[in-house]
């Protein structure tokens, strides 16, 4: 079972990388960009019986730093009977 974890900076936390990319997009002429925030995608391949609670603990204990980051996760289709 594949699970995709999305880790993003909390609102209000300065994202200098996102800001630099924003400037670069503007430099390329994309003037419609209002803001850029950069996060991280982590794909996990888990045993089929892994439950949400375990994934949640993985996020809290290691994958995200809750001081500065939020996380969410989704199970990707395939490999699991509906």
């Amino acid at each position: 079972m594949k699970v995709r974890v999305l880790v993003s900076l909390k609102p209000g936390v300065l994202d200098p990388q996102g800001r630099a990319v924003h400037h670069a997009l503007e430099g390329l002429g994309f003037n419609e960009v209002r803001d850029v925030r950069i996060g991280r995608v982590i794909e996990l391949d888990l045993a089929d019986d892994a439950d949400d609670e375990a994934i949640d603990r993985m996020c809290r204990q290691l994958l995200a730093n809750l001081v500065i980051e939020n996380y969410s996760f989704e199970r990707l289709g395939g490999g699991e009977s509906a």
Binding site: V13, L14, P16, Q17, A20, N65, V67, I68
Partner: peptide
């Protein structure tokens, strides 16, 4: 130390990159 929870807060990328 911050990642281990012994000190509060976090150390992020320098503001000037």
């Amino acid at each position: 130390l911050t990642e281990a929870g012994l000190l509060p807060g976090a150390l992020m990328r320098n503001a000037g990159q």
